[in-house]
Computed example of a mutant assay.
Amino acid sequence: MHFDSRWKGAFGIGRYAHETRSRFAQPVEDMSAPGDPVSATGIAAWEARTACSGLRRRDEFLLSPSFTPSVSWRGPQAVTVHDLIHLDIAEESSSAKRAYYEYIVKPTVRRNAVTFTVSHFSKERLVEWSGVDPERVVVTGNAVADAFSRKGPTHSAGHPYVLYVRNSKPHKNSPRLVEALARMQERDVHLYLSGEADEATVRAAVAFGVTDRVLFTGGIQDEELASYYRGALVAVLPSLYEGFGIPAIEAMACGTAVVASETTSLPEVVGDAGLLVDPLDPEAIAAALDKVVRDKSLHHRLVSAGLERSKKFSWDDITRRIETALAQAR
């Protein structure tokens, strides 16, 4: 089997690629190409690379941990479509992205014997969009790295805080979370946001008078991120859209209570181990955060339920699902 090894980094697809690639039982040959995998130059380099190898290896699978297939590969292949956010969120779409999905991704999904995705929500959306037989779409799920556990150092902030592990894209809904912070009755609670400061979130903090309670952490490596989870009163995911939502199970594995959106994939990931809220309603988000912070019995229940639920997500199981599906697709 050949593996698209271009996807690296501390983000959803990067984590998925690293954790599954390191666990395959069968021999795997990495294939890479220079450039951003979704840039025009990166796509061209990938096609050139796979065209050369594909001519010689028509009986071997090419597996991508992301949505980027190779048009030039002559043998069987499988892609992993984590979500359709590039189509479903207008602010994160473009004519070029829509064309790529319509003319490259959709025919690939329809042609391949198997396509992978990470949640039942994403599977339903993928089947609806592509018209592919649901039997040919396999839900693998996601899991967490070993660094995320209850054991280890705890970040000491000197004040209570709520943590949101996110980027600055519109679907992460950070400005509404800032408004929710301003509406909380617990006025000493701060909001920690991973990543760099972005204009929309800073503008919201100024507008709602909470600049002194909002902190941008910058990039955080896994070991340090686990300590931030352990130190948080609550981990919150008010996203408008997720294909899975790995921070929810990272937080649970670290023994942190979770408040998350009631939309897209998050209900199936969180289950009854967290509080679900309307991400469009800052008042509802604030009320849920206040409730978890104030109600010690509820907080304890969510922590206990989260620890148990996080055990249901295993990279070993995910990798076995992938290998089984590929074997059946041959």
Rank of each mutant, 00 (worst) to 15 (best):
1 M>E: 04
3 F>C: 03
7 W>M: 12
7 W>K: 05
8 K>R: 15
10 A>H: 10
10 A>V: 08
14 G>E: 06
16 Y>H: 13
19 E>H: 14
22 S>Q: 14
22 S>D: 10
24 F>T: 08
28 V>Y: 06
33 A>F: 05
42 G>Q: 08
42 G>D: 09
52 C>S: 14
55 L>Y: 11
56 R>F: 07
57 R>N: 15
58 R>P: 05
60 E>M: 13
62 L>H: 08
66 S>D: 14
67 F>M: 14
71 V>F: 08
72 S>C: 14
74 R>Q: 15
81 V>M: 06
83 D>E: 14
85 I>V: 13
85 I>F: 03
88 D>F: 00
92 E>V: 04
94 S>R: 13
96 A>H: 13
97 K>D: 08
99 A>Q: 08
101 Y>Q: 06
104 I>Q: 13
104 I>N: 09
104 I>M: 10
105 V>G: 03
107 P>V: 04
108 T>D: 09
112 N>T: 10
112 N>D: 15
116 F>E: 02
116 F>V: 03
119 S>F: 00
120 H>P: 04
120 H>F: 10
122 S>N: 05
127 V>L: 01
129 W>F: 15
131 G>P: 11
135 E>H: 14
138 V>C: 04
139 V>G: 01
140 T>D: 08
141 G>E: 01
141 G>C: 01
143 A>F: 07
144 V>S: 15
147 A>F: 10
147 A>D: 15
152 G>E: 13
156 S>R: 15
159 H>Y: 14
162 V>D: 12
163 L>R: 10
173 N>V: 03
175 P>W: 03
176 R>A: 08
176 R>P: 05
177 L>R: 02
180 A>W: 00
186 E>Y: 01
188 D>Q: 07
190 H>K: 05
194 S>G: 09
194 S>I: 04
195 G>V: 02
198 D>H: 04
198 D>V: 06
199 E>H: 06
200 A>G: 01
201 T>A: 07
206 V>Q: 14
206 V>G: 06
207 A>H: 07
212 D>H: 13
213 R>Q: 08
217 T>A: 12
220 I>V: 15
224 E>T: 09
226 A>T: 11
227 S>W: 09
234 V>A: 10
240 L>Q: 06
245 G>Q: 00
248 A>Y: 01
249 I>N: 00
251 A>K: 02
253 A>I: 04
254 C>K: 12
257 A>N: 09
258 V>R: 00
263 T>C: 00
265 S>N: 05
269 V>K: 00
278 D>L: 01
279 P>C: 01
287 A>K: 09
293 V>Y: 14
293 V>M: 07
294 R>H: 03
296 K>F: 05
300 H>S: 13
300 H>M: 07
302 L>T: 00
304 S>W: 03
304 S>P: 01
305 A>R: 13
314 S>F: 03
319 T>F: 05
321 R>P: 02
323 E>K: 12
323 E>H: 08
323 E>G: 09
325 A>N: 11
328 Q>D: 14
328 Q>L: 15
329 A>V: 00
330 R>Q: 13
